[in-house]
Nucleic acid binder design. Structure first.
Lengths: 207, 207
DNA sequence: GCATGTGAAAATCTTCACAGCA
DNA sequence: TGCTGTGAAGATTTTCACATGC
């Protein structure tokens, strides 16, 4: 394979493939063709093949892909094959929901610390984690916590991001409804479901 | 302006513009240039101008865009200028969280009914809505409920989608971690934050 | 025969450069 | 001068067709 940058769009699809392949694996599938996969997840077979081809050829002609091998490979590409320690800031409604969200462990995320600025919350235990004061964020240094999760109100999000970056975080999941500015080496993924569902009426047929 | 299909990518950005413009409006801005907006939300000024140009020219050269006018226009394009009645199915943890989510009203979504198959939940009130048995989904017919929100476990999602479509729903927000099959005229937006954050480690610099 | 992997064509989206207007 | 609106160039992504290998 010629080296080429893997398209961002491909990276976006990999977690979907991973999810569906995990399903096939649970059902006992050993091999799967791009056609079978495409039927399941609604993408074209050639799209799937192209996506996989970016990171090397490991399908077998005439047979398809080895399900387990494919899962391992995708996890490796996405760097989901190791544990990632994360810290969450903002233990309000949203923060508590995120702490309880089972999806994180599935992908190897481990939330090891939680912070809040409300003295009433500090010291309380949520989901096995004792909430600390936000001033303690700097204690994350050298603790190998590379992911920060921001679930604070909009006004506090930039300040929170700064504190996290200062403590060595290089990836941020931002649940605040605003953009945050960070050094170029830090990756931010903003999650705002409102932005997604606001598109729905546009695509619905007029009555 | 020549007529051209508005790119999907533009449609994805419109809700972001809307969010930020609403912020500027709150702060009392009357006009805003594409440059100011771009500084705030991290897109190129020409990208913003191009996006707006797809739905007609209404900026003023040398001045910028009228904030209120722009907000009204974007809402109209996205069809967010009218109330959309919605029904939610699956009043578990996720469903309850979604019911309580304030973002919906902001965009004119009004959840008018909730369903569950658990007899213990049926009849209870959550967020002002009495939970009904799933068999009552068909009662939505002719009630002008065009949006369905699916927050049931994966196994039940296709069945739920079918019931909703049969009752006249033409847009679905699917929170189940799987694809659902619907007639072409029905638009599905699948929301799965796990798919978003699974990409984060890929973009983080290696230690 | 069957299904992958890939160069090339087509479609789509982004960036640019600049004409045009207040 | 300052900023919009847009055709055209450039980049990226998707689709296709088919050579290749089991």
């Amino acid at each position: 394979m010629n080296y080429r940058k893997i398209p961002d769009e491909t990276i976006k699809r990999l977690p979907i493939y991973l999810r569906d392949l995990t399903g096939f694996s649970r059902e006992g599938y050993k091999n799967i063709s791009s056609k079978e996969l495409s039927g399941h997840l609604g993408a074209n077979p050639w799209q799937i093949r192209k996506d996989f081809s970016y990171f090397g050829a490991f399908g077998t002609c005439g047979v398809g892909y080895d399900v387990e091998k494919l899962i391992t490979q995708i996890k490796k590409i996405l760097k989901l094959d190791t544990i990632h320690k994360a810290a969450l800031v903002g233990v309000g409604n949203l923060g508590s929901a995120v702490l309880a969200y089972p999806g994180f462990t599935m992908y190897g995320f481990e939330i090891v610390a939680a912070f809040d600025n409300d003295p009433k919350k500090v010291g309380k235990k949520t989901n096995g984690i004792t909430v600390q004061d936000v001033s303690k964020i700097s204690n994350l240094k050298n603790k190998d916590v590379k992911i920060g999760i921001i679930t604070v109100p909009r006004q506090a999000s930039q300040k929170t991001a700064d504190a996290l970056v200062n403590s060595g975080v290089t990836g941020i999941l931002n649940f605040s409804p605003c953009r945050i500015k960070v050094p170029k080496k830090v990756k931010v993924i903003t999650i705002n479901i409102a932005l997604d569902f606001a598109r729905l009426p546009y695509y619905m047929p007029a009555r």
